[in-house]
Amino acid sequence: MAVSVFAPASLANFSVGFDALGLAVQPVDGTLLGDLVKVEKSTGTDGNRLKVVGEFAHKLPSLPEDNIVWSCLHLFNEAMADAGFETQKVTITLEKKMPVGSGLGSSACSVVAALAGLNAFYQNCFDEKAMLKMMGQMEAKISGSLHYDNVAPCYLGGLQLMVPDGQIISRTLPDFKDCFYVMAYPGIEVSTKAAREVLPDNYSRKDLLAYGQNLAAFVDACHRQDKAQAFAVLQDVVAEPYRQSLLPGYEQARHYLLAQGSLAVGISGSGPTLFCVCDQQERAQELARWLQDNYLQTELGFVHICRVDDLGARTIED
């Protein structure tokens, strides 16, 4: 038996919701923007094995025990043992389609695809909540703090709001189905750890009020499907003012994209990927071409026009 699971890219924070909002995205041209994990029973005398392939495989540690997918296997097997389930020796193949340090939830893609793949291989021994908690635990190991704004949308799909309830974790918000999200990865890396270190330890009362009002207004607008209000308040007062210095060309691109009719522009996750929102595909295509010419910095960079990915992690037929 072999099972393959794809986990899509995600746009964490969504400007207005630092560590509280995440959006799963998929390119309109059908490109699989995310990671793919295949789990199959090891043959003969082989024990557990990990293979890493794909465009960005060279960016990952060479030793299996240093790879987050290997850690996922151990965590999952421990959970299986605690629940009284037997495990088999498996071979896991990670097809690393996502650039590391891109701000598109690269580590979350690997974690979600690996754990969801293992759960599917064992006929779904664990429910959605248990799986999400395991995914959050692995993400915390990577970034140093527990936050679900990448793993929740990557696993569940859609627009996810993190809630302060360990039993619920995340709520799905209504999103805007007619919107296009232009994602531009310039081809350089920004680590989540480094992006967090540039943030201040304390914020002013003015910033706290602005953050709370903007996030509340955005959630309200989502439920009322008020697109104008939703994107009018899509302002980042928590991270963007401090992180934009890590993103060459971001400030200039932001001014241009807004002047050309983007509904909103922001940093995806901790960067360096930039996103802009349009409600017309023709405009999205025009801005994608401009970003291709003016925001990318290396041959690894790319631009994708995306819609919301409502499916999240899912099995893929070989």
Rank of each mutant, 00 (worst) to 15 (best):
C306G: 09
N119P: 01
I188H: 11
A108T: 02
T43K: 15
F302T: 01
K227L: 13
G301H: 11
E317Y: 08
D175Y: 14
V90W: 11
I169Q: 09
S107I: 02
L115Y: 06
P241Q: 03
D149E: 07
L33W: 10
A9D: 03
S245Q: 13
T31G: 02
L32C: 02
L63A: 12
L63K: 14
E251K: 13
T31A: 14
I316T: 09
D207H: 09
V237S: 01
L115Q: 10
V190Q: 08
F275W: 08
M131G: 14
V190P: 05
V39F: 11
Q244T: 13
M131I: 12
E55P: 00
K177V: 12
D165I: 00
Y155W: 06
G84C: 06
T45A: 14
L50K: 02
I267A: 07
M134W: 06
K96E: 01
L263K: 15
E282G: 07
I305N: 04
Q213N: 11
Q160H: 03
Y211L: 06
G54D: 07
Q123R: 11
E282T: 14
P186T: 10
N214L: 04
G266K: 08
C306I: 09
P27G: 11
A83M: 07
S62R: 10
L33E: 02
K97H: 13
P27L: 07
H147F: 04
I168G: 00
N48P: 05
D279H: 13
L258R: 12
V5T: 04
P174I: 08
Y203E: 00
P164W: 00
R49K: 15
F275P: 01
A288G: 07
T192M: 11
G187R: 08
G158P: 13
L287D: 01
D207L: 12
F6M: 03
A24Y: 12
L33G: 06
C278P: 04
D29S: 09
I316F: 02
L104C: 05
T315V: 13
A12Q: 08
Y148D: 00
K89P: 05
V238R: 01
I168N: 03
L300E: 15
K177R: 12
V5S: 02
G166M: 09
Q137L: 09
P174R: 09
R283Q: 15
V182C: 14
C222S: 15
A81G: 08
R243N: 08
T273R: 10
P99D: 03
L33M: 15
V182Y: 07
E128D: 10
D318P: 15
D279R: 15
C125Q: 15
L161M: 13
G54L: 04
F14T: 08
Q292L: 05
L274P: 04
V303L: 03
G157E: 07
D66G: 10
N150L: 07
Y148K: 00
D293R: 12
L36K: 09
G271V: 05
S102E: 11
L234V: 00
K96P: 03
P200E: 04
A264E: 11
A230T: 06
E240M: 01
T192E: 01
Q26P: 00
L246N: 00
A79R: 15
M135S: 05
C179D: 05
G30H: 07
D35C: 09
T298P: 03
S191Q: 06
G101T: 02
N48I: 04
A140G: 06
Y122T: 10
Y181Q: 07
V163T: 05
